[in-house]
Write a protein that binds this DNA or RNA. Structure first.
Lengths: 159, 159
DNA sequence: CACTATTAGTTATGGAATATAGCTATATGC
DNA sequence: GCATATAGCTATATTCCATAACTAATAGTG
């Protein structure tokens, strides 16, 4: 693809100082995304030694805390499509962290239950994750962290 | 795949009340991700009528504010890989919102400049985006929004 | 100046998250 | 009983993000 030369010599700097994304920084969404990305990659790195990804850890965690939850309930709780839970549940089951059990009263659905290994894995990963977050958020006081979570939850209601 | 029946009848509810993701809600990262997702889909919906996606809007915005920025600088500023900027820049160029201009002093790089149409498109989209955020964050006071942004930026330093 | 290393942009590719449509088996409501 | 809805599953497409490798051009070093 041919491109024209600059019509005039490129100015050395006709832009104000400061970061390139100064305008974007005025959006809450942009800052949210960047902060979220940082915490996500931090979490992924932390969970990896446990053989878990963020999605599998999240599902495992919900199953540990809510024995006999169904896949549909899990999907709804985690804000994901039912179809996308299948492979995640498959992975957890193959790793013997959870089991699928037929529900006598509704043979369409499966009751999901963590195995003992699943509970242990969740607890160990949760501990590591909490301390990784702790480290990442060291610059924020406890009050600030609490306020951050409070503000975020008010953006994402549906308690 | 065959599955075993439940060894005992599924308990009606041996789980505490409340949302399924109660444990996950204790992580800042989880709340960040959920809030971020909401703002992202809100932004995507808002930008769509302008023929922009979040990535193209972000790049366009940086180029408008920083004439003659290079693709590498853009990538660094937006925390993305250089290789992934190419298609985004291609799209903006094909839509005649920006142009690639050879830099006389370094013939490897391109100076990116927004066209008049690009500037107008950015401004219109930015206005829509700001008001969409405004609407989304109506529950938060101005002070709370400012504090949210401040806390987020402290998670993502590098000013 | 020659040679090496580095950089800018590009291309190709793969992984992971996400969204939709359609399928089977089962359950529910009239 | 029959239409409709639901649970789980399969297949598929998209988008985002990351990596590797390539070229052309530049910078550094002897």
């Amino acid at each position: 693809m041919e491109r024209k030369p600059a019509p005039r010599p490129a100015p050395v700097a006709d832009t104000q100082p400061g970061p390139l994304d100064r305008h974007l920084r005025s959006y809450a969404g942009y800052n949210l995304k960047r902060a979220s990305n940082i915490m996500q990659s931090n979490a992924a790195r932390t969970l990896e030694p446990f053989g878990l990804r963020i999605t599998t850890f999240s599902a495992l965690s919900v199953i540990v805390d809510n024995p006999d939850v169904t896949q549909s309930q899990l999907a709804a709780g985690l804000n994901m499509e039912r179809s996308n839970t299948v492979l995640i549940i498959d992975a957890l089951e193959e790793a013997n962290l959870i089991g699928r059990f037929r529900v006598p009263t509704d043979r369409r659905s499966y009751a999901l239950r963590a195995t003992l290994a699943g509970m242990k894995r969740r607890d160990a990963a949760a501990k590591a994750l909490a301390s990784a977050e702790e480290e990442r958020l060291a610059d924020l006081s406890m009050e600030e962290r609490a306020q951050l979570v409070d503000l975020l939850r008010r953006i994402d209601p549906l308690d």
